[in-house]
C-alpha cells in the first residue's frame, strides 16, 4: 500500500475551512432510519431493510453535500473578492433531503402520497430557512478598470494554491529554523494577496511576484521537502536552502514595500488633482 495522497491543492485549501458543528443535525436526525434498517433485517424483512438502508444513505449523501456547500460558503464569506461557487451544493443537498424525507414518509411510515409530498416540501423550506441559499453573486469588491474580475479571481486562486503547496511542504520539513522561516514567508505572501484583494489595481504590479517568485518558492520548497523526506539532505543543501529562503523573504518584503509606495504615489496624485481642482474653484 502506498502512502501517497492525491495531489489536490483546491481540496487542501477547502479542508482548512472550519464550519464547526454546522450541519451535524443533518447527520444525527436520520439515525433512527439506520436502526430501523437493522431491526428490519433482524426480523427477516430483507426488502424493508434494504429500503431503509438506501434511504439512510440518501440522508447521509445529502448531509455530506450540504457540509461541502457550507465550507464553500464559509470560504466565500471570508474573502473580500471571490467567485460564487459554481455548483449550488446547498440547493442540491436541500432537494435530495426533501426527496429522501418524502420517500421515507411514504415507504416506511405509512403516510399517504399527498402528505409525503407535503412533508418533503416542508423539509425543503426548513432547510432553506435554517441554512440559507447558496451565494450566487460574485464578490467583485472594488475591481476597477485595467483588470477584469476573472483575471483577479484566477490570479488569487492560483496564488492560494501555490501557498497551500508551500504550506504542505513546510509541514513535512522537520527543521524548526526552516519551519519558522517558511511560516514568515507564507504570512508575507498572504499579506501581499490581502493587499491585492483590497486594491485589485495592484495585480498588475504584483504579477511578477505571483507568477515568478511565488511559483519559484513553491517549487524550491517542494523539492527540498522531497529530498528531506528521503533523509538525503546535506549540509551544503541546507545552507543553500537557507540562503534561498533569505532572498525569498527579502523579495517578498520588497514587493510589499513596492505596493505600499505605489499606493503612496496614487495618494500623491490624488492630492495633486485635488489641489488643482481647488485652485480652479
Amino acid at each position: 500500500m502506498t502512502k501517497a495522497t492525491r495531489y489536490d491543492p483546491e481540496n487542501q485549501i477547502l479542508n482548512t475551512v472550519k464550519t464547526g458543528i454546522k450541519g451535524t443535525l443533518l447527520f444525527l436526525m436520520p439515525l433512527p432510519v439506520l436502526i430501523g434498517a437493522v431491526i428490519h433485517l433482524l426480523k427477516g424483512n430483507v426488502f424493508s431493510s434494504l429500503t431503509a438502508g438506501a434511504l439512510f444513505a440518501g440522508f447521509m449523501i445529502a448531509a455530506v453535500i450540504a457540509r461541502h456547500g457550507f465550507k464553500l460558503e464559509s470560504r466565500f464569506k471570508q474573502k473580500k473578492l471571490a467567485k460564487a461557487p459554481g455548483m449550488p451544493f446547498k440547493s442540491l443537498a436541500a432537494t435530495l433531503l426533501a426527496i429522501t424525507t418524502g420517500l421515507t414518509a411514504f415507504l416506511l411510515s405509512d403516510y399517504g402520497l399527498l402528505a409525503s409530498i407535503l412533508i418533503g416540501f416542508v423539509a425543503l423550506l426548513g432547510f432553506y430557512m435554517a441554512y440559507g441559499v447558496d451565494p450566487r453573486r460574485d464578490k467583485t469588491g472594488n475591481i476597477s478598470l485595467g483588470v477584469s474580475a476573472d483575471e483577479v479571481f484566477q490570479a488569487l486562486e492560483a496564488a492560494e494554491i501555490k501557498i497551500a503547496t508551500i504550506e504542505k511542504a513546510r509541514k513535512s520539513i522537520r527543521n524548526i529554523e526552516f519551519d519558522q522561516h517558511l511560516k514568515r514567508i507564507i504570512e508575507k505572501a498572504r499579506a501581499i494577496l490581502a493587499m491585492i484583494e483590497d486594491d485589485p489595481k495592484d495585480l498588475n504590479r504584483a504579477r511578477k511576484f505571483l507568477k515568478v517568485y511565488l511559483d519559484g518558492t513553491a517549487r524550491v520548497t517542494e523539492s527540498y521537502a522531497k529530498t528531506h523526506g528521503k533523509d538525503a539532505t546535506t549540509e551544503v543543501l541546507d545552507t543553500s536552502f537557507q540562503e534561498v529562503l533569505d532572498s525569498i523573504e527579502s523579495t517578498f518584503d520588497e514587493q510589499r514595500e513596492k505596493l505600499l509606495q505605489n499606493d503612496q504615489l496614487d495618494l500623491d496624485v490624488k492630492i495633486e488633482v485635488l489641489k488643482t481642482q481647488l485652485k480652479h474653484l
Binding site: L25, L26, M29, P30, L31, P32, V33, I35, G36, I39, H40, K43, A52, F59, L97, T101, T104, A105, L108, S109, D110, Y111, I119, G120, V122, A123, L125, G126, F127, Y128, M129, A130, Y131
Partner: peptide, 30 residues
C-alpha cells in the same frame, strides 16, 4: 423577519419533518 427567528423556525421545521419521520420509522416497527 429577523434572521435568528427565521433560523429557529427553519430548524423546527427540519426537526418536525426529517426528525419525526425517521423516528416514526422506529415506532412503526413496534
Amino acid at each position: 423577519m429577523p434572521y435568528i427567528v427565521q433560523k429557529v423556525i427553519g430548524f423546527i421545521l427540519l426537526s418536525a419533518t426529517v426528525g419525526l419521520v425517521s423516528l416514526q420509522v422506529l415506532f412503526h416497527l413496534s
